[in-house]
Structures are given as structure tokens and as C-alpha cells.
Write a protein that binds this DNA or RNA. Structure first.
Lengths: 241, 241
DNA sequence: GCCGATTTGTCCGTATGTATC
DNA sequence: CGATACATACGGACAAATCGG
């Protein structure tokens, strides 16, 4: 959490919007007014506002102003958008996370694994299966592949807690980008065994490739979600590119 | 398609990346070099690059440079991110779209519809059911709700072609923001009737609320996708807010 | 319809901080 | 340590859209 000026302004405005200081559909104070309140430059303020736009809090209109379009019921608790670990998002929503490690092995990528994950053939990997519980319910079955020489000395104990915490705080790896693809897939025997799927015969699947600051893809993960608890939110803008 | 300087730079750099002028994992020329090539200011160049970051083409690293992380196989044809109509994305991928209007009615929002869509009770709406074909296959079943006084004089004929084209080019409505939520739902009788679901008993469902430049939500749409042809792509970054 | 005030959008230049090598 | 790279922040100028008189 950097303490730059524009993130502070962003957080302050976001807070004012969420607490209802500006009403739904109301215009925020004009740029010039906000520049004075925050004693900052125009660029700095505009940067904060543009982050609010991408997060779906406000919309800007040339010649008119900046309108609050935040609706608490919709924004919900499960806004995805950034990169967040299971543990992080659980805690943010005041829920109790638990992780069970079903399988912890070391493998070498063959052609088949390479095709699925994007790692080159011959890569030395950790392969894990983990089951994530939220408030006691098994919701997500994860297949994780980590490059061994990046996520070095990973253990089952770490995997039961939080791998991301270990990567960032102990190994000082900075996670930068993640490409995610969402699909719907038929359930497998493993899914059926560990997740309570009820009548559903398929799951929501999120496949992601994660890069560190050296530009190496060090993680491929396939998250298989119980469909009735899955929800993915997104704010799109009409882009002119 | 505005002809601003930074969109031109964005498009040029993106094109150079896609055509392989910069190799995967290679560093782009430094900011200062690019500023000179494009004869622009620092802000303008940085704006173009930051768009490439959000689109997953490059990653920036302080003190190091800007790395190309574009992989053609993955980027695929179906990158979602902005707001795009069915017709637009079909044409962009050189596929043949067809739309069949199953139902075209005018309704008034009651409590139930209001809860589902977010329109206030009493709103006058067009309600449509449309079936979208791609290369002859029925892939998407849409339930569209439009505010009547915004999407005025909508007809069945327009709905068979492209509603967005009508809204933008004839009514001169500018579409600004869209909030989307992705879930997986069990199939209904209507789904089963019109989409070839095979063994699947559920679908990928995208619910979206769309706003115009006056800040009024004028559209609620639920798109029900055949799961085996559904794919939603996303580039996330570790954000510090 | 025009004009001027207001508001956001684009673009430029510069200075300083911070990470990397 | 210095050179290079991106990150943050400031200030100013003009364009484009909106609104009221």
C-alpha cells in the first residue's frame, strides 16, 4: 500500500462515495474545487478520478462533471479486478478461510503439461491440489503449478496457509501481471469427490498465468469453482482503441 | 475512433508488438527514445504505454524498462475488455453473425423485474428475447430490457440487425459504462429449447447494466451462453489501492 | 442562435524521487 | 558511485462539450 498522493485522494474519494457522502447520480465537486481541497495538481487529481472510473464508481462527462454511479447492492463484496489471493479476499469479506492440501508433488513438464500451462517442456515444477473452504464449505478446488526455482523451498505447511504471502514476504517476489481466462467445464471425478456440486454437472473454471517482476511466468493455476458460489464482476468502458 | 496522439501511439506500438517487431520478453525502447521517435511529451507516451499494460501486452518495471509479454496463441481472438456488441465481436473475428428475434414486447417493470434488472418499478421497457448464431450455431440466448424513452422506436427489424448500431448511429446515444457480472446458472426450459447444450445442464450467464452519457442506466441484459463456446478473458494487475 | 463561463479532455515541459545496473 | 530507467508530481496552454443568459 504505497502512500502516494494520488492513491490517498483515490481512497478518500472512494470512501466518501461508499459512505454516501455523495448521493447516487450526484455530481462530485468540479476538478478545480477538488484540486483546492486536496491541494494537488490537476494531473494528480485526474489520476485518482480515472481510477474511480475504471473501478466503476463514477463516470466523467466532458463539459458536465463527474457523476457518482456507485450502487452498494450491486458492487457487492466480491469485486474481482486486481490480483488477490483466496485468503486475502476471504479476509476482506470477513469470512473464515481454510485451505486443505490434497496433493503436493514435484513434477517435470511434459508435452501435455506444457500445452496446458504454457511452461516450456522440461520445466521443474511444484504441482499442488488444494481445496479452499469458506465458512466451512468447500468452494474451490485449485490445481497450482509453480516454477520450482522461483517458488523455491515451498512446503506443504506454507501451502496450507498462504502461498502468496510466502512468495511476497519471504521470497520478496513481486507479482505484476496475471492473465485470466474464464470458462465453464464439465465436472471431473475429483471435482465431484471434493466439492458439493448438487445437481450441477459443471463448474466455473478460472485459468491464470501469473508473472513476476522479472517477466517470467512462474505460476499457472486452474481454479475450479462451485457454480452456485461463483461470481465474477467487471466494469467495462466503451474504449476507443 | 478518435485521432488523438496517444491513441495513435498506442495503436502503433500494439501493431509493432502483434506483428513481432518486438520479440516476446524483449524490452521496448526506453521512454526517452520513444518520446523522440513519436515527437511527443512524456505524459502522452506514458499514457499509451499504460493502456498497453492494462491490455496485457507489456509490463513496466521501474529502473529496468518495458517488457513485451504478448503471446499470440493466448491473446486469442476473443479478448473481452471493452464494451462490444455481438455483431462487432463476430465481425472482428471474421465470423458470420445472425440474430433471431424470438420475442419482442413492451412491458412495465413490476417488483420482480425491478429486482432483477435494477430499473425502478413502473419503468416502461422493451423486452426482447434474441438468439445469436455464429457460423450457423446457436450460441447465445439474450434477454434484453431497454428503457423505452431512451431506445425509442425500437423495432423487431432493428433488433434482428444490431441494436447498438441503431442506438449509437441513429439515436446518437453514447454508451459509456457497463457493469457486468458473470455467473454459472442451471439451464431453463427456454435455454434447452433453443441452445444445443448436449450433456451440459448449466450455462455461462453474463448480466450487464449499461449506462449512457446522461448517467441513466438504459439497458439490462442477461446473456446466456452455451458453455462450450464461452470464454472470458481478463488481464489483472496487482493494484496497490 | 450566439456568447461567455464552467467543466472535462488532451498535450506539453520540467523537476524530483526511486529502482536497477 | 554514476548513468539509466520508470514513477510521481507540479504547472500551464489550448481544445471540446455543456449550460445558462
Amino acid at each position: 500500500m504505497p502512500k502516494t498522493k494520488y492513491t490517498e485522494i483515490y481512497r478518500d474519494l472512494k470512501n466518501k462515495i461508499e459512505t454516501g457522502e455523495y448521493e447516487f447520480q450526484e455530481l462530485l465537486p468540479s476538478e478545480n474545487q477538488l484540486i483546492q481541497s486536496y491541494d494537488c495538481s490537476r494531473n494528480t487529481l485526474r489520476r485518482a478520478v480515472s481510477s474511480l472510473v475504471t473501478d466503476g464508481y463514477v463516470q466523467t462527462m466532458q463539459g458536465k462533471g463527474v457523476r457518482n454511479i456507485f450502487q452498494p447492492t450491486l458492487q457487492a463484496s466480491f469485486t474481482i479486478g486486481g490480483i488477490e489471493s483466496f485468503r486475502e479476499s476471504a479476509l476482506r469479506n470477513h469470512q473464515v478461510p481454510k485451505t486443505e492440501v490434497l496433493c503436493f508433488t514435484e513434477i517435470t513438464a511434459d508435452k501435455k503439461i506444457s500445452n496446458r500451462t504454457g511452461f516450456p517442456v522440461g520445466s521443474e515444477l511444484y504441482y499442488l491440489q488444494r481445496l479452499h473452504y469458506l465458512d466451512g464449505k468447500a468452494l474451490i478446488l485449485n490445481h497450482n503449478y509453480f516454477l520450482k526455482h522461483v517458488a523455491r523451498n515451498l512446503t506443504r505447511e506454507i501451502a496450507e496457509h498462504s502461498i502468496y504471502e510466502y512468495l511476497e514476504q519471504t521470497l520478496h517476489i513481486t507479482i505484476v501481471t496475471s492473465k485470466r481466462i474464464m470458462t465453464v467445464e464439465k465436472m471431473t471425478e475429483i471435482d465431484e469427490k471434493y466439492l458439493e456440486l448438487g445437481d450441477y454437472n459443471c463448474l466455473a473454471v478460472v485459468s491464470s498465468q501469473t508473472y513476476n517482476s522479472d517477466g517470467v511466468m512462474f505460476e499457472y493455476t486452474q481454479s475450479r469453482h462451485r457454480p452456485d458460489y461463483f461470481r465474477f464482476q467487471d466494469n467495462a468502458t466503451r474504449r476507443m482503441m
